[in-house]
Nucleic acid binder design. Structure first.
Lengths: 226, 226
DNA sequence: CCTACCGATCGGTAGG
DNA sequence: CCTACCGATCGGTAGG
């Protein structure tokens, strides 16, 4: 141990001039420093995992010194919880929005959405959450679950249950019509698995678009209506 | 730092008598201490993740002192690589065995296995690898991939390619017959996703058996032959 | 939000 | 495979 060595990580952006750097207007006014920490944490947790990411990594990525994240979050665990809650909040909003838009356009020609069309909307929205822009939060939730405390799991589980609840009647209807074979509860888990796994192999620079993936998923899982 | 504090983790099994414990015949003769380290590492890496597991945790779980794992493995990263390689070796063996047995019984009544029956065998074997006894190794490979070095990834990828190769002609045949809709390459990724995700939710104490899951998977993904 | 720092823990090693 | 230890890093904090 070397008791005289101070922290030395100094972000480049803060070294352009000597002394305490001026903050730009963009950085100064509101509480968006907290957002910067949150987004940096989400990105690093996704790339390296929770345990392999130090709070110093996060501070540096947000352009701060090592102790500063603790001004915004009580501890590292709370930061992970905040990433997951923000991820679920945003996913729920995107889902509600997608379903809402689809229902409206359905009402326009006085024809209710088919269960198949509903599933298409849910799948497409889920793929955006997983693979679209700003998509670090939910993958962290999916793959760092074990790093949560029991209390945090309970909180996030409430949001997760909300998210999954939208799928249940759709899958039930498809099962009733014969378009979805097998127990709908297991089917939901399998479909989520197929989709969630895409974060391990999907490359945005690849040829397949999210629309391509959506259609493939429907082809794979659904039978012809009888 | 307290330079006088020695490592204090002392496994219970070594405290039954005073002084250096006698090893039982079971422990003494062969190199199964290496196996003990490997299995302890697999279990802990699966439960807690690679970065969150200390080599001291592993040593204690194997009934050793903190420095002893490094007698068997060069460093922590090599231990992770060994877990994954052992996992793939064992998975390949189980797959080859399952396919071999199925083909033999098919030849007995001079009828070649249908592609559907082939897929059933592959799915069932994969579920055993993921959820059966001694199933810590492959989940570690699936969910700790990012902790590998580039060199290690190349090695494990060779085994993984072998494993996946067995699926390709089967899925191709099912696609040709119309039983599997959508691009077979994407279908393979989706099926693996659906299966691999089961390690996140499957509870052996639950009602569903691996046979149940296998049938559900076939129902979900396959159409009637035309 | 930074400075300066602490106690704990970690991966790893020399020598037996 | 154990003993005894090292240097580095980590999460977190007091005080400003």
């Amino acid at each position: 141990m070397s008791p005289v060595t101070p922290d030395i990580a100094v972000p480049d952006a803060q070294r352009r001039s000597r002394g305490r750097p001026r903050k730009t207007a963009d950085e100064r006014d509101d509480g968006n420093r907290r957002q910067a920490v949150l987004h940096a944490a989400a990105r690093l947790f996704r790339q390296q995992g929770f345990a392999a990411t130090s709070t110093r990594d996060i501070a540096a990525a947000a352009g701060m010194r090592s102790g500063s994240p603790f001004y915004h979050f009580e501890n590292k665990a709370a930061l992970l919880g905040a990433v997951m809650q923000e991820g679920m909040r945003s996913a729920l909003q995107r889902q509600a929005n997608a379903v809402g838009v689809a229902v409206e356009s359905g009402e326009a020609d006085a024809r209710p959405l088919s269960a198949r069309a509903c599933l298409r909307v849910l799948v497409r929205s889920h793929l955006e959450v997983l693979l679209g822009p700003d998509s670090d939060f939910i993958p962290v939730m999916l793959y760092e679950w074990r790093s949560l405390t029991e209390v945090q799991r309970t909180e996030v589980n409430r949001l997760k249950a909300n998210y999954e609840a939208a799928w249940v009647p759709v899958l039930q209807a498809l099962h009733t019509s014969g378009e979805l074979q097998g127990d709908p509860g297991l089917a939901r888990l399998m479909i989520f698995g197929a989709l969630n796994w895409s974060v391990q192999w999907y490359d945005a620079a690849r040829k397949a678009t999210l629309d391509d993936l959506t259609e493939t998923v429907l082809q794979l899982f659904l039978k012809e209506p009888t």
